[in-house]
Write a protein that binds this DNA or RNA. Structure first.
Length: 585
RNA sequence: GGGCGUGUGGCCUAGCGGAUAGGGCGAAAGGUUCCUAACCUUUCGAUCGCGGGUUCGAAUCCCGUCACGCCCGCCA
């Protein structure tokens, strides 16, 4: 509704400007402050003091007179308030919002037919997912959900780095080190089991000297060469390790939940020859040059000082070379490609785009979202190899444990009729605990650095997931109280309470919020919206009883419809954030 | 040294060049015979890092500066 109202406001304002023979390219449309009784406003009068020869308030008044809303579906009027032009909605705006909100899918935009691949996480398959990396699946999964809601066909990909030196070291370590030399795994999961070899292997490699070191390096080199050549036996040895670790990592990511349609292996682009092919085309570019038998691409013309080395002197490819083949493959199969990467990959990502452009690809179809690091208090980083950092499994376990305590401590004071059994408590604890972790991360702008602190990440009061989930539970409670007798054709005209109007207005904005969040690839804006939604619902809850006996029948029916629309909105908004919506808590 | 990013009350955070910088935590006070108090109300608290500039108007744009983070590999 809001999208159409805003479009209509733009149309009538543009027409009014044209009537004064003024250009209508800058309409100054904006959201008015909270205490102003308007949905959309314009500050265009400020800019016309010369063209219309007058003070802004007087110009606003003259423009308002020229506005014709007779053709509008939702605009009731445009009124001058000081220098501003405020757009008021008519009753149809509220009626249509209420009717639209009764659809359980409310908020979803029409299908666009656009195929979008969202690549996220893509953490090296070397060990358990830690909290430093957890920002990636949480942001990536929410972006995928938003793009889907915005009408696109979305595929989620995890790009598996199974071709670099790290996995060669890992494979060597796994095959050389005996289990008895290692400490017991921290968990009975394959990623925790195998990371011990990875860590021990890296330590051993640093400690080795002389011929022992040479032997080990030769073995690692042989594995890398085998991978580069697409040698079947080598691929099998490496994948025995990689697939096993990945299975463990996948199980952890499932808890968020972050699920993938495809795990795209890097070696695939070696085996099918596309990496060699892209390297060949890169060598033919004017900006390509050979130095000490290695090949690089000069990117000065693209404003990047660091040249991109794409072939080693031994003829093997590098990570970005393979990623170039990977991205050409994406562009071939999808209309758009979105990648979520840590800020440490920024240079690599810009080199990738510059190289693709030199290869003649349409890089406008590629978007990259960068997120800043998650550090430990004191500024320490998290590293899989060194074993520093907090495992995501531990964080989620702790979150669910604390949520369970919270649920249990509240059992005594519950007044809702339905009882909770053990399974309910466990389910709610999981929904609340995991939701709190996701919200804490997704609610912040990706570019801001985060310092991980247990107390803050697991604060269930604050502006947190449980606060939002509680709104959904309240909606469900009211609907349950009303025996699910939801009116199919409610009369919105009886909804004249400010809290009812305010709630309908925020419901009306939901599709527009999805649209902009998907366009800007900014999931935190949905988190902000959801918070504002919760505030307005709670005001409605406080001031507008629904099922009380002294509420007239028509008002009860209309308010019940508002609650249903609110339930759909909050449930779908939480879903975009990957947060479950409990019916009771 | 160069590139990119971030800097908003004690702490966390929102903010498209426009209306009194919006929330939360914290601290203080209050609210439940009434749809779940994981809620709500009130109060306290900000020269939007600092200095210039552009503009009718700057947290927002530009320049400079400081602090912090990331990057600048024939690693990924």
């Amino acid at each position: 509704m809001y999208r159409r109202l805003r479009a209509e406001a733009a149309d009538v304002l543009a027409a009014a400007l044209s009537a004064h023979e003024l250009p209508a390219n800058e309409l100054g449309l904006e959201d008015p402050p909270g205490d102003v009784d308007a949905i959309v406003a314009s500050s265009v009068a400020f800019r016309l003091t010369e063209a219309m020869e007058g003070a802004p308030p007087e110009i606003a008044a003259r423009l308002a007179e020229a506005v014709d809303t007779s053709e509008c579906t939702y605009v009731a009027g445009v009124e001058p308030v000081g220098p501003y032009l405020n757009v008021r909605p008519n009753d149809t705006y509220y009626e249509d919002t209420l009717a639209a909100g009764l659809n359980p899918e409310y908020g979803e935009l029409p299908a666009t037919g656009e195929r979008v691949v969202v690549e996220h996480t893509s953490a090296n398959p070397t060990g358990p997912v830690h909290v430093g990396r957890a920002r990636n699946p949480i942001i990536g999964d929410s972006i995928a959900r938003m793009l889907e809601a915005a009408g696109h066909d979305v595929e989620r990909h995890y790009y598996v780095n199974d071709a670099g030196r790290q996995v060669a070291v890992f494979t060597w370590a796994y095959e050389t080190i005996d289990d008895t030399e290692l400490p017991p795994p921290e968990r009975e999961k394959p990623d925790y089991d195998l990371v011990r070899y990875y860590r021990a292997g890296n330590r051993r490699l640093e400690a080795l000297e002389g011929t022992a070191k040479a032997t080990a390096e030769a073995e690692i080199q042989a594995i890398m060469q085998g991978l580069e050549a697409g040698d079947e036996a080598t691929l099998e040895r490496v994948h025995a390790v990689v697939d096993e670790v990945l299975a463990g990592m996948r199980a952890t990511l499932e808890r968020l939940p972050a699920r993938f349609d495809e795990f795209v292996k890097e070696t695939r682009f070696l085996v099918d020859g596309s990496t060699a092919d892209v390297a060949e085309r890169l060598r033919a570019l004017p900006a390509a040059a050979e130095e000490d038998e290695a090949w690089h691409l000069d990117l000065q013309a693209d404003g990047i000082d660091t040249p991109l080395v794409f072939l080693r002197s031994d003829g093997t490819s590098l990570y970005t070379t393979r990623d170039l083949a990977h991205h050409e493959w994406k562009l071939e199969h999808f209309d758009r490609a979105v990648t979520v990467l840590g800020e440490d990959h920024e240079l690599q990502a810009s080199q990738l785009l510059a190289a693709l452009e030199q290869l003649g690809q349409d890089v406008d179809r590629i978007a990259t979202v960068h997120y800043s690091w998650v550090n430990l208090p004191g500024g320490a980083g998290m590293s899989t190899r060194e074993g520093t950092g907090v495992d995501l499994d531990d964080l989620l376990d702790e979150a669910v444990d604390r949520a369970r305590e919270e649920v249990e401590s509240r059992l005594d004071t519950r007044t809702r009729d339905t009882e909770l059994d053990e399974d309910d408590i466990e389910r709610i604890a999981r929904q609340v605990g995991v939701g709190a972790v996701r919200y804490d991360i997704v609610a912040k702008q990706a570019t801001k650095a985060i310092t991980f602190e247990w107390e803050r990440a697991l604060d269930f009061d604050a502006q947190s997931a449980p606060h939002l989930q509680y709104v959904h539970a309240r909606c469900c409670g009211i609907i349950e109280q009303a025996d699910d007798e939801v009116p199919t054709a409610p009369d919105a005209s009886v909804l004249d309470h400010p809290a009812e109007r305010a709630l309908l207005e925020v419901i009306a904005r939901f599709p527009a919020e999805i649209e902009t969040a998907a366009e800007e690839l900014a999931p935190h804006t949905i988190a902000t919206y959801t918070r504002e939604f919760a505030d307005r619902f709670n005001a409605f809850y406080r001031d507008c009883p629904v099922t009380a006996t002294d509420v007239p029948a028509d008002r009860r029916a209309a308010r019940l419809a508002v609650v249903v629309a609110a339930r759909h909105t909050i449930a779908n908004a939480l879903d975009l954030l990957g947060i479950e919506a409990p019916e009771s808590m």
